[in-house]
Simulated scan of single mutants.
Amino acid sequence: MNSTTWLHVPDVHSFLARAGDFLRSRPALHTVTLTACEGLRVRGPQAYGDEAPVFGVLERGGEVRAAYFRTPPHRLIVTPLAPEEAGSLAAHLRAVGDPVPGVNADEATAAAVAGAWRSLTGSEPRLHERLRLYRLGELRWPEPAPEGRGRFAEARDRELVARWYVEFVRAIEGAGLQDPGAWADARIADRRVSLWETPDGVPVSMAALTPRVAGQIRVAHVYTPAGLRGRGFGAAATAHASRAALAEGAAEVLLFADLANPTSNGVYQRVGYRPVTDFAVYDLAGAVAD
Rank of each mutant, 00 (worst) to 15 (best):
T35C: 03
E197K: 10
R26Y: 07
L7I: 04
W164E: 02
R270N: 01
D50A: 14
M206V: 04
A116C: 12
R149W: 13
G286C: 13
D98G: 04
R75V: 13
R118G: 06
L29I: 07
A207G: 01
R231F: 11
A112I: 10
A239I: 14
E143M: 03
G232K: 09
T71R: 05
L160Q: 03
R231T: 07
G227Q: 15
E84K: 15
E107T: 12
E147I: 11
G61H: 11
W183L: 11
R26L: 08
T5D: 00
Q216C: 03
F69Q: 08
R231H: 14
G56W: 06
L34M: 08
S205P: 09
A237N: 02
V161S: 06
F55P: 04
F22Y: 04
Y223V: 13
A244T: 05
T109C: 06
A66C: 11
E167L: 15
V213R: 05
G20E: 07
A208E: 02
W6S: 08
W6F: 01
A182E: 15
V222I: 15
L7S: 04
Y282F: 10
R94M: 09
A251P: 05
G150F: 08
P10T: 03
R149N: 13
L81H: 01
L209N: 03
T79E: 04
S14I: 02
P211S: 09
V193E: 00
T263Q: 14
F22L: 03
A19G: 03
A153H: 07
V253G: 00
R18W: 05
T35V: 05
G272K: 00
P80T: 13
R187D: 08
T224G: 02
P125V: 12
F233A: 15
I77S: 08
E197N: 03
N261H: 09
P53K: 00
A155S: 10
R158F: 07
M1I: 13
G176M: 15
R191G: 08
S88A: 10
L254S: 00
P83Y: 12
R24H: 00
R135Y: 01
R24M: 08
G215P: 03
W117V: 14
T198C: 03
V169F: 12
T263H: 13
R135T: 00
F22K: 07
H13G: 06
S123P: 02
P180H: 14
V204A: 11
E248R: 10
R41A: 12
